[in-house]
């Protein structure tokens, strides 16, 4: 990345983090909700969008992150609790990933579903670590000797960690391990023939993705201050998959867009319902409208919001400029009839 662009990016992040202190409590709450969900979505995007391994266990991995951070945070680990949450979820992710060395596609997806249910069950019964069904209270994270309790501070911290995650993952994709993810996603046989150790590459994908999802889980724990089994159920996994599909697989910005969509739309529906005095009816429709949205995206824009926005931007520039600026990959756009599996160049 050129130095100027790097500086610009840094400025945007610092401004966004600083700006969150100017927000009201609810606004800051929305910001950190989106940012934290986006971090997990990026972890899942690495695994599914870039390395081609579908997973329905991210809800449980977020849970492992939250419980680990909760226990260690309560024991006074501070920031170390967030890192440890990442490590714990990374280990769990690799264990969940072991069947992927044998199973492919849908069969592996079912295996992750099983892992999700097993972990949910463990959250309920391993009471010394999870406090069972009643849930575990989590003390505020202590940072520089002071407890972080305000939503504004969490918004700033979440934005900073989101930026770090984005940079780190984008960097990872420019290493040989990252490039190997893409080959494994496209065709494992070709990957083997190219001399790629597919087993090793998959394990790296599970490890890195699990770490990122675990960090997100730690932030979930510290912001909600409570970790309980039903908070990390299958619906959270489905939300994550929805972010991936709605935002766009294999594009980092897609994870942020998808997270924004999936977190903010229910809030908007809620507000609308309260205004029209039909809150109960609309909240019941939340799940349904989600399912509908996913189906619509799969039908009309499998590459998600990221591709949709890119097309919009291209259209606007074509209207605004007599000689449109050439796209970075015009040949890709022109030649491929987008057979569903086609993905835009990774950011």
């Amino acid at each position: 990345m050129p130095a100027r662009r790097r500086l610009a990016l840094l400025a945007v992040v610092v401004l966004a983090a600083a700006g969150s202190f100017a927000l009201g409590r609810f606004g800051a709450y929305l910001v950190h909700s989106v940012a934290i969900a986006a971090i997990a979505a990026m972890g899942l995007n690495l695994l599914t969008g870039f390395a081609g391994q579908i997973s329905f266990a991210s809800g449980a991995l977020i849970g492992i992150g939250a419980y680990t951070a909760g226990n260690l945070g309560n024991a006074g680990w501070g920031l170390g609790a967030i890192l440890a949450a990442g490590v714990a979820a990374a280990v769990a992710s690799v264990v969940i990933g072991l069947p992927a060395l044998r199973l492919r596609g849908l069969y592996y997806a079912i295996a992750t579903l099983a892992a999700q249910f097993v972990l949910e069950y463990l959250f309920k019964i391993v009471e010394p670590l999870t406090k069972g069904i009643s849930g575990m209270n989590i003390a505020p994270l202590v940072l520089l000797g002071r407890p972080v309790a305000s939503d504004q501070a969490w918004a700033a911290i979440s934005i900073a960690i989101l930026a770090l995650t984005w940079l780190g993952l984008a960097r990872l994709m420019r290493t040989n391990v990252g490039r190997a993810f893409l080959v494994v996603r496209e065709n494992e046989l070709v990957a083997k023939g190219m001399g790629i150790d597919v087993v090793r590459v998959k394990l790296w994908a599970f490890l890195a993705s699990g770490f990122v999802i675990g960090v997100s889980g730690a932030l979930v724990g510290f912001t909600t201050r409570l970790a309980s089994p039903e908070g990390f159920g299958l619906s959270l996994s489905i939300d994550q998959v929805a972010m991936l599909i709605v935002g766009g697989q294999g594009v980092w910005a897609g994870s942020l867009l998808g997270a924004g969509f999936v977190v903010l739309i229910p809030e908007a529906i809620q507000r609308l319902g309260e205004a029209l005095h039909v809150a109960n009816l609309l909240s019941a429709m939340r799940e349904m409208s989600f399912g509908l949205l996913i189906v619509l995206f799969l039908l009309f824009e499998p590459r998600g919001l990221a591709a949709l926005l890119r097309r919009l931007a291209r259209g606007v520039s074509r209207i605004a400029l007599p000689h449109p600026v050439p796209d970075s990959s015009p040949v890709v756009a022109a030649r491929t009839p987008a057979p569903g599996g086609t993905r835009e160049k990774a950011l």
Binding site: N176, R179, A180, L182, V183, V190, G195, G250, T342, R343
Partner: peptide, 16 residues
């Protein structure tokens, strides 16, 4: 291989 450039592929070869 959708997203990979010529240089990416050659680097993977070297990484083998």
């Amino acid at each position: 291989l959708h997203d990979l450039t010529v240089l990416d592929i050659v680097k993977l070869g070297a990484a083998a």
